[in-house]
Each structure stands twice: as C-alpha cells, then as structure tokens.
Computed example of a mutant assay.
Amino acid sequence: MGKKGVLLVNLGSPDSTEVKDVRRYLDEFLMDERVIDIPYWKRFLLIKGIILNVRPKKSAEAYKKIWWKEGSPLVVISERFTKKIRDKIDLPVALGMRYGSMSMEKAFRELQEQNVTDVYLVPLYPHYAMSSFETVVEKAKELLEDSFKEMQMDVMAPFYDKPDYIKVMAQHLSKELEGFDYDHILFSYHGIPERHIYKGDPTGSHCKLNGTCCEIKSEAHKTCYRHQCFETTKGVVKELGLKEGTYRNSFQSRLLKDPWLRPYTDHELEAMPEQGIKKLAVITPAFVSDCLETLEEIAMEGKSEFLSFGGEDFKHISCLNDDDAWVEVMVDWIEKWKS
C-alpha cells in the first residue's frame, strides 16, 4: 500500500477578465473533443476561425460582472472548500482544474511531491456527462500514463443520488428559502446536446428522450446525465415534501444551434409569469460552486428576464460552495475511501 492522497477537480476559470486570458481559457475548453464533439478539423475551424474571434470579448464582460476582489468566484470557492477539507483529514489534498492555469497536472505534481502514490480523484460534478465528469477522468488517466506512472487512481462516482448529498442539498435549499415567499422552484441544470445522451448510452437503444426512458430501469442510467438530473430533483423534492406543481426542471447554457436538453431555462423564465408564477426561486444543482453560469446567467440575466416578462420576485439559490455541512459530507466520503 502506498501513501494516499486526494485530488479535487473543478471546471476552471480564466486567470483574469482580460480578453486575452478569456480567449486562452475558451480555446482550451472548447477545443476539448468531449465538449464540442465534432471532427477535429471542423472543431478547429469553428473555434479558431469563428468563436474565438467573437466570444472572448462578450465572455470577458460577463466575467467582469461576477469577478471577486480575490479572483474568479469558482476558483476562490473551490480553494476555500479544499482548505476546509484539508483541515479535517490527515491526507494530502490537492485542487486542480480541468481547464486553465490551475491545471490537473500541477495538482498531480503537488501530490507527487508529497510522495502520494494512491490518488482518490474527486470530480466536483454530481452528475455524469462526457463534457464534465468523463473529460476529467480521461484527462487524469492520460496524465498518469504520460507523467505519473508510479501513481494509481480510484475515482469517486457521480453522487447525484447519494442520500447524504440529497439531504445536505435539501437542507441548504430550505435554509436559503427562509423568509422568501415563493410560489415555484426551478431546478435549472447545465444543458448538454441531445446527441451526448445517445452517445453515452451503453445499450445503444435505451435512451429515447421521449419522457419515459428516464423512468425505466436501465444500465444506461449510469452514464445518463438527464436521468441523473431528474433523480436529484426527485430526491430533494421527497426530502422536503414539496407538492407536485410547485417545482420543475430545465436546462441552461446552450451553445451553437444543435438541439440541447429541454425544456430550456430561458424559455421557462419567459413563460412562467403568464402561467401565474410570480415569485420564483432558482437552484442550480449541476454545480457545487457558484460560477459564471450561476452568478451571471441565472442570478443576473435570468432574474432580469423573469422580471421583464411579468415576474415580481426572484431568488437565486447559491450553490453548496464551502458550506460546512457539505464539507462534512465530502470528508466522510474521503474517510470511507481512506479506510
């Protein structure tokens, strides 16, 4: 048995809100074949020839809206979370990002310098998707093969339905809703292209995106992002005893013109006031740390959209971030692996 250590991995962030830094970050992120899964030459032309000439400036402005004095919210929150984990367990713990200068390679190197040979990889994504969980795991395998051959690795599975995770999510939501007179809760998950669902189906036939396949037990659910999102909502709803008709699911952050998972969050925000929903709470369970997609897309743009279509009050529910109860859950999972 070698020395054990933990590697926490989150998405990543530009180094600053400068256009050049945002462009560099987007280049790495969007050129990932598991994010935009089209042939390399098409991806190269699309990203290098079109998107990187337009999007970095717009994204830089969005980052400026949410940037903290200490830096990127996602990075700062992840660092705070990591510190709390380190303070509670007797193991080396490193933090890496899938994209950006806080690379996974640097994090592996940090563990290597502490003589770690048995690594517990913890992708900080509750749900399985090829563009999030899978790309982290595959990048880690690549790094081990190329640069850290003395290390072996265990991977924490997606935790979307783990009872202690559901419980801490429900407690957090309940606490955030104190004093807010809401009439509906929107569970807004990060979106992915519909084709990713089909690609991730190991049976090659179960996933239909027809409203029923997610309810029929199948091996496909182990890698089905859509099913796992719905299960998270079901778990939180059951834990809190929410009534049918007082909540719904949606998917945000579409990119390009391909069909993505529906219903779309922006369409729901526009439609709900006409349906009599005037006081809305929005929770984003696909993220454990607040980031651009929660702080700008939902808390700012989403709120503005909802109110402009007749909504009266809007509350963005923060992510778990470095909540002490969430820290305790993660520590417990790591301790179980350690033993």
Rank of each mutant, 00 (worst) to 15 (best):
Met151Trp: 02
Glu244Asn: 01
Gly12Leu: 05
Asn10Ile: 00
Ile36Ser: 05
Lys257Thr: 14
Ile277Arg: 12
Lys278Tyr: 06
Lys279Thr: 09
Asp332Gly: 14
Met1Ile: 11
Phe287Gly: 11
Ser218Arg: 02
Glu328Gln: 15
Phe287Ile: 02
Thr117Ile: 10
Lys84Ser: 11
Thr17Tyr: 06
Ser253Ile: 11
Leu124Glu: 07
Ser131Tyr: 02
Ser16Tyr: 03
Tyr182Thr: 03
Tyr189Gly: 13
Leu307Ile: 15
Met1Phe: 09
Gly211Ser: 02
Asn321Thr: 12
Glu215Ile: 07
Phe148Met: 03
Trp67Val: 13
Thr232Ser: 09
Pro259Thr: 10
Gly241Asn: 02
Ala286Asp: 00
Lys162Val: 01
Arg43Thr: 05
Trp260Asp: 11
Gly100Asp: 09
Lys257Ile: 12
Gly5Tyr: 12
Ala60Tyr: 03
Ala94Phe: 11
Tyr225Asp: 08
Asp154Val: 06
Ile298Thr: 13
Tyr128Val: 06
Ser13Val: 01
Phe306Leu: 07
Lys4Ser: 11
Ile38Asn: 09
Ile185Phe: 03
Trp333Asn: 14
Gly12Pro: 08
Tyr125Gln: 12
Met104Gly: 08
Arg262Asn: 14
Arg226Ile: 01
Glu105Ala: 06
Ile166Phe: 02
Phe287Leu: 04
Ile166Met: 02
Leu307Cys: 11
Leu143Ser: 11
Phe133Trp: 13
His221Ala: 04
Thr246Phe: 09
Asp258Cys: 07
Leu8Met: 15
Tyr264Gln: 09
Val327Ile: 15
Gly204Val: 07
Leu7Lys: 09
Lys336Thr: 10
Val35Ala: 10
Ile77Gln: 10
Gln275Tyr: 00
Glu335Gly: 12
Val93Cys: 10
Gly191Leu: 04
Tyr63Trp: 10
Lys69Ile: 11
Leu45Trp: 11
Tyr189Asp: 08
Glu297Ser: 01
Glu301Gln: 14
Tyr264Arg: 04
Cys229Gln: 00
Gln152Arg: 15
Ile197Asn: 04
Cys224Asn: 01
Tyr160Arg: 05
Pro202His: 03
Lys139Pro: 02
Val76Leu: 05
Gln275Lys: 15
Met151His: 05
Arg195Leu: 06
Pro56Gly: 12
Tyr189Trp: 05
Ile197Trp: 00
Asp313Tyr: 02
Tyr225Arg: 06
Trp337Gln: 05
His267Ile: 02
Asp313Asn: 14
Leu209Cys: 10
Asp313Arg: 14
Arg254Asp: 02
Val331Tyr: 00
Gly310Ile: 09
Gln228Lys: 00
Gln112Cys: 01
Gln152Cys: 10
Leu143Phe: 05
